[in-house]
């Protein structure tokens, strides 16, 4: 693993060394993902492809929630609420303003694929930003509340968001929101996944971003080290919500239909379970758990009625036997390794 790791670090050093390196890395990433996009959408059968897309969206959700729950130690069980805001906001944008925007883009020479891509990027950002604003709102109680209380407030916020959307007629209310253009493809899902993993990793592994984990471990000590704990808690919520919003936007533009039933607290629990299963504070764990928990239900389809029983029993057994999650320790690429490394000190004086 260390050979691969060294190679990766060399690549990264090149990519961050200069603007040229950065642009090259971006270009290569985009090129690879575009090729994959073309290849996979043609090679895979629609059913497998659909699962792949949902895996990607769940990765974005799980990794972003891990920033809040795993790295910063705040307990949010309202992630589906942020996802809903992003999904509906982006859908409203592309459905209501999309045609006009596309016409405007075409007028300045950005027709066809480029125009829709631009529109979709704007919609993704719009969804993300609106969700981030909600994250700010939810983050504020986190300054005062801990643990269980915060959990129930985030859950409450999530439910309030859902009920409000249910009452907004222009978002379809109880009928749901149909007719969303299908802009989500493999490229955008994968690109969002790469971005969220990189952003969260860059945040938590830097000395500056150590503050997230300091807040989780010991708020008093963190403040004594000069960390503005308030700022970091709110920041975790805002960034986490932003990506949940993006995930929601991807979700809506993939299913081309949104209903508030997709965003109940069961969805929030699902994301929490991914984070917990993967290991709180392990990015790679969240990624793997998101994939596992997206595929597993499909495999268990034949025993549909036992599926959720199995799930919940799994969660309890996991907590009783391995509360740090499956991948809580020793993971490649330095993405995890954070949670429980209880080795004996060998060279201790």
């Amino acid at each position: 693993m260390s050979g691969a790791r060294r190679a990766w670090m060399a690549v990264e050093r090149f990519a961050t060394a200069s603007l040229v390196g950065r642009l090259a890395a971006l270009a290569v990433t985009i090129a690879v993902l575009v090729v994959l996009d073309r290849a996979l959408s043609r090679l895979l059968n629609p059913y497998v492809f659909r699962i792949l897309m949902l895996c990607g969206i769940n990765i974005v959700l799980a990794v972003s929630l891990n920033l809040i729950n795993g790295f910063t130690g705040q307990f949010s069980i309202g992630h589906a609420g942020f996802m809903a805001i992003g999904g509906y906001a982006a859908a409203a944008m592309t459905t209501y303003w999309g045609p006009a925007a596309l016409k405007a883009f075409a007028a300045v020479g950005l027709a066809g694929g480029i125009g829709t891509s631009m529109l979709f990027v704007l919609a993704l950002l719009f969804g993300g930003l609106l969700a981030a604003a909600a994250g700010l709102l939810v983050g504020i109680p986190s300054l005062r509340l801990r643990g269980d209380y915060l959990a129930i407030v985030t859950l409450g916020f999530g439910e309030i968001i859902r009920v409000v959307i249910l009452n907004l007629d222009f978002l379809g209310g109880a009928r749901g929101f149909p007719g969303i253009p299908r802009y989500t493809n493999f490229f955008w899902v994968a690109f969002s996944g790469v971005v969220v993993v990189l952003v969260v990793r860059n945040l938590v592994s830097s000395a500056y971003g150590l503050a997230f984990r300091m807040v989780r471990d010991d708020e008093t000590a963190a403040a004594a080290m000069g960390v503005d704990t308030t700022r970091f808690k709110v920041m975790a919520f805002v960034i986490g919500a932003f990506f949940a919003g993006i995930a929601g936007a991807l979700f809506g533009h993939y299913l081309i239909y949104l209903h508030t039933n997709s965003f109940t607290f069961m969805k929030s629990f699902e994301i929490v379970i991914m984070v917990v299963l993967g290991g709180m504070g392990s990015i790679i764990g969240s990624v793997i758990a998101a994939i596992l928990l997206t595929i597993l239900p499909e495999l268990l389809r034949s025993v549909q009625q036992y599926r959720m029983v199995f799930y919940s029993a799994l969660l309890i057994v996991l907590m009783l036997t391995r509360p740090q999650g499956l991948f809580g320790s020793g993971t490649p690429f330095g993405l995890g390794r954070l949670w429980s490394k209880r080795r004996e000190v060998r060279r201790a004086a």
């Binding site: 130690g73 307990f75 069980i77 643990g147 269980d148 959990a151 629990f269 929490v272 917990v276 709180m280 009625q305 036992y306 959720m308 029983v309 799930y311 919940s312 029993a313 969660l315 309890i316 907590m319 009783l320 509360p323």
Partner: peptide, 23 residues
């Protein structure tokens, strides 16, 4: 154990009762 672990377990028990109930 940390309270968070207990909280997640409680959520698990809740889900188990609901789904076992459906069954």
């Amino acid at each position: 154990q940390p309270r968070l672990t207990v909280l997640i377990t409680a959520i698990g028990v809740s889900l188990l009762l609901e789904n076992a109930g459906q069954l």
